[in-house]
Design a protein around this nucleic acid. Structure first.
Length: 491
RNA sequence: GCCUCAUUAGCUCAGUUGGUUAGAGCGGCGGACUGUUAAUCCGUAGGUCCAAGGUUCAAGUCCUUGAUGAGGCGCCA
């Protein structure tokens, strides 16, 4: 059935604007999706512009029964009419419909969603429709706000947004397994005379992959533009099956010239506080929905496993309190003397200095010992990447360390990983040789250290982990529209 | 990749030591009501119990294998 267009063409007004300005006694047009149709009379209409619905009141006694029949949960409709003060409780204004248009019918027998609570797992399998739910609409509005806030934060501080390549020929970044990019025919891969794959016939005439990090290219930009940041998709072909890993995710990587590790920590902390505060300020309604959802979800858990703070309290806490900063060496001391370590409750007991921290250790520090975000610094050089700056030896520190920092958040774990970069050419080359990083492939990177090198620092922020923290969603697959993970690339 | 748990109606779930015809709420459909707030009330239909094999007089229930999902771990952001 073709839609009946409004005789009098009027621009539609977004529900967010109507509820903000409440233009009572004016005629408005709204268009959206039916969230509920009560009593053959009251339509709860949502157009995605905000969490709240607008109540559209139908004069059902004089309405065409064939039209009323089509007003179903999920249908796309338009309504023209006078905005009036609501007679009922629960909303201040409502729209007295003079005309209703059905744009898209929604057959309740076919439509997978229902006007009730549905499991996140079910909705994940219907990811193309889950935007229609209150929870996911809220998540994606918050996700947008956070992305915007990040751009605003950096732009306001004179950073340049640098677009680093998504296809890269460098496989020396050391940040994990990569996805190969090729146009070679997989059913008939060409080989050279000595039996190697003949990449000379490939599109780029060399092996290429999807990027695992824009950092090295970002450094090149920073060493001329001063302060840059990247914000783009990142790909890891790791077989990771957890609630905080994706094969395709978005990462923010600022890089700052003439900056040391402390500057780096200050920047990361200020940014995280800024964007959390932005969400509190601009996403109050959506955060309320997510907070209530979390409360419901936690009712199923035993008392001692429920989070002590509500979602917005948690965000306020991050905004208002300084992060705890301590060195790896200090953290090891705390962990060694901790109750769970003494009682043998850690799956991986703390033996001593030098071992990488497991997530149970990070969780203990963040959730039990400090109960606030923690920045760990100056890790052993042996467990960190080649480009991190070697520290001067310090008293009481058993081995060489680098100017690395990881920011750990409650419930999320590592949300930021960064470092001051090794700007000294000789030191960097020595490190690359020790770690078997092919110098020839990164000659362009080494040029920055040959010509006008300077101290600089940067970090990587996992955007989805940030969205998880702010929305309280437990699974990272629920904060990205169409998650990619091992065995899954649907939609 | 490893470990644990799950899979029963469209959705969320119950189903006792293996025992007759597998249940509920929501949703659907039919009707009533008409200022409702996931409206309410009455009626009604709806099932290859994930798949394949096995044990047994008898399997939704026990065993084996596989698939899918969830959580934890590792890798990391």
């Amino acid at each position: 059935m073709p839609p009946i267009f409004f005789k009098q063409r009027m621009k539609r007004t977004k529900i967010a604007e109507i509820l903000r300005t409440e233009p009572v006694n004016t005629e408005v047009v709204v268009k959206g999706w039916v969230k509920a149709f009560r009593n053959n009379q009251f339509i709860a209409l949502n157009d995605g512009s905000c969490a709240a619905n607008l109540q559209v009141v139908l004069d059902f006694e004089n309405a065409d029964p064939a039209l009323v029949e089509r007003i179903r949960f999920g249908a796309a409709i338009g309504a023209r009419g006078l905005l009036v003060e609501s007679q009922g409780k629960g909303q201040r204004v409502e729209l007295k419909a003079a005309e209703i248009t059905v744009y898209g019918d929604c057959d309740p027998e076919q439509f997978p969603l229902q006007p009730k609570k549905q499991s996140l797992e079910f909705l994940r399998e219907h990811a193309h429709l889950r935007f229609r739910t209150n929870t996911f609409a809220a998540v994606f509005r918050v996700r947008h706000a956070l992305a915007f806030a990040i751009h605003k934060f950096f732009n306001d501080r004179g950073f340049y947004y640098l677009h680093t390549p998504i296809i890269t020929s460098s496989d020396a970044e050391g940040a994990g397994e990569m996805f190969r990019v090729t146009t070679l025919p997989l059913e008939k891969i060409p080989h050279t005379e000595n039996g190697d794959i003949d990449f000379g016939q490939d599109f780029f005439k060399r092996p290429t992959n999807l990027t695992v990090s824009g950092q090295l290219e970002g450094e090149l930009g920073a060493l001329a533009l001063g302060d840059i940041y990247t914000f783009g998709p990142t790909f890891r072909a790791e077989n990771s099956n957890t609630t905080r890993h994706l094969a395709e995710f978005w990462m923010i990587e600022p890089e700052v010239a003439f900056a040391d590790l402390t500057d780096n920590m200050d920047l990361a902390e200020a940014m995280l506080q800024y964007v959390c505060n932005y969400a509190l300020e601009y996403c109050a309604d959506d955060l309320k929905i997510l907070e209530d959802r979390l409360v419901e979800e936690e009712k199923a858990k035993p008392q001692d496993q429920r989070s002590p703070m509500s979602l917005t309290d948690k965000l306020r806490f991050v905004v208002e309190n300084q992060f705890e900063r301590l060195t790896y060496t200090e953290a090891i001391e705390i962990l060694k003397n901790s109750n769970p370590n003494k009682k043998g409750q850690f799956q991986y007991p703390i033996e001593g200095w030098g071992a990488d921290l497991q997530s149970e250790h990070e969780r203990y520090l963040v959730e039990k010992h400090f109960q606030k975000p923690v920045i760990l610094t100056n890790y052993p050089a042996a467990i960190k990447a080649f480009y991190m700056r070697l520290d001067e030896p310090r008293a009481g520190v058993p081995g060489p360390t680098v100017s690395a920092m990881d920011i750990l958040f409650p419930g999320i774990g590592e949300i930021v990983g960064g470092s001051q970069r090794e700007e000294r050419y000789a030191m960097l080359v020595e490190k690359m040789q020790a770690m078997h990083i092919p110098e020839a492939e990164l000659d362009w990177y080494l040029d920055t250290r040959r010509f006008g090198s300077c101290p600089h620092a940067g970090f990587g922020l996992g955007f989805e982990r940030l969205v998880q923290f702010v929305t309280g969603m437990g699974n990272i697959r629920d904060v990205i529209a169409f998650p990619r993970y091992p065995g899954s690339a649907e939609f």
